[in-house]
C-alpha cells in the first residue's frame, strides 16, 4: 500500500511543503505499517465535509491518496477535523512524514 499525503492551505503556502509526500507502507517498520493499514481501513465508512466551515480562513485541507493493489481512493479532509478516525489517520501520517533533521 502506498499513500500520498499532502497539506494545502494554512497561513502561508510554502512551495517545499506543497507537494504530497509518498509513504510506502512496505518500507515502514511492520508495527507502524500495520497501524497505518488499520487506520486507513477505519476511514472507509467516513465521509469528510468537502470544505472548511463558512467564514473560516487559513485552515488546512489534508489530501490522502491511497493506492492498494488495484484499488485507489482519495480523501480530502478539511480542518477542523471532527471525526475521530480521520483525525487518527492524519496524526499518524504527520508522524510518518516528519522529516527535518
Amino acid at each position: 500500500m502506498r499513500i500520498a499525503f499532502g497539506v494545502e492551505g494554512g497561513i502561508a503556502s510554502f512551495p517545499g511543503l506543497r507537494k504530497p509526500v509518498t509513504i510506502d507502507c512496505d518500507a515502514l517498520p511492520s508495527e507502524q505499517a500495520a497501524r497505518l493499514r488499520t487506520l486507513v481501513e477505519r476511514t472507509r465508512a467516513v465521509t469528510a465535509p468537502a470544505s472548511a466551515p463558512p467564514g473560516a480562513a487559513d485552515t488546512r485541507t489534508y489530501t490522502v491518496e491511497i493506492e492498494d493493489g488495484r484499488e485507489c481512493r482519495t480523501l480530502r479532509i478539511p480542518e477542523p477535523i471532527v471525526d475521530e478516525d480521520l483525525r487518527a489517520l492524519v496524526d499518524e501520517l504527520r508522524r510518518c512524514t516528519r522529516n527535518r533533521g
Binding site: G10, I11, A52, P53, A56, R60, E79, P80, R98, R100
Partner: peptide
C-alpha cells in the same frame, strides 16, 4: 504548524519547534 480563523474565533498552534 498553523494559526487560523474558524469563522468565530482564533486558533494558534505551538509550532513543531523545528520549522
Amino acid at each position: 504548524d498553523n494559526a487560523f480563523w474558524n469563522g468565530q474565533q482564533m486558533v494558534f498552534g505551538d509550532g513543531d519547534g523545528d520549522l
